[in-house]
């Protein structure tokens, strides 16, 4: 209720020492918070700023491994793996060898919601166990909810090895 002022207040000047201290304190705290906020927000939101294309060419095996006119499951190591990744460093993909020189490499992820599609050589279909999407052997959409054909890796043959541009999870926002 009553103003108690232990210090020698300069009550007749416009700004008291207390008010001055309050303003200085609020200003310094705000400045400190803003400065500290920069690295904190930068750290948390680094996904927005770092280059989105963190992919690299990675070998998925010598081409003799893939018989012509067949589709095989290949598991490659994520090129940007960390020591504690464990099993998640494995990335599966489907490799289709059309003929001597032509390949197609499909991501394992269904284009609907990312579940792992399975290849059925007898009916030449990829089927998804989640919501029943199906794709033909060339990856094009056959039936079910997927909005497009399978995601296809960029690939090349180097020194007899099949290389793919790998390292990130394909989604509709960023197909391979």
């Amino acid at each position: 209720m009553t103003e108690t002022c232990g210090c020698a207040c300069a009550q007749d000047t416009g700004v008291s020492r207390r008010k001055m201290m309050l303003r200085l304190g609020a200003g310094m705290t705000a400045a400190g918070a803003a400065l500290m906020g920069v690295p904190i927000l930068g750290f948390v939101l680094s996904a927005f700023t770092r280059p989105t294309h963190a992919q690299e060419w990675v070998s998925i095996g010598p081409i003799e491994q893939f018989p012509a006119e067949q589709t095989r499951l290949v598991v490659y190591q994520n090129p940007a793996t960390r020591p504690w990744d464990g099993d998640t460093a494995h990335v599966p993909c489907w490799v289709r060898r059309i003929d001597e020189q032509r390949f197609q490499v499909f991501a394992i992820n269904c284009t609907h919601l990312g579940c792992p599609v399975r290849w059925f050589p007898e009916s030449k279909l990829f089927m998804c166990p989640c919501h029943g999407g199906a794709f033909y052997e060339d990856g094009s959409h056959a039936s079910g909810p997927p909005p497009r054909g399978l995601f296809e890796y960029q690939h090349k043959i180097e020194d007899g090895h099949l290389m793919v541009m790998g390292g990130y999870l394909p989604t509709l926002a960023e197909p391979l």
């Binding site: 939101l45 996904a47 770092r50 989105t52 998640t88 999870l169 989604t171 509709l172 926002a173 960023e174």
Partner: peptide
């Protein structure tokens, strides 16, 4: 991640924010 990837404009960034990287891994 696939649901995030359907967001227009910033889908790719949201996928990265969710997964803490370009792919499901340690982080």
């Amino acid at each position: 991640a696939s649901i995030m990837g359907r967001v227009p404009m910033i889908g790719a960034q949201l996928v990265q924010l969710l997964l803490a990287g370009p792919i499901i891994a340690g982080e």
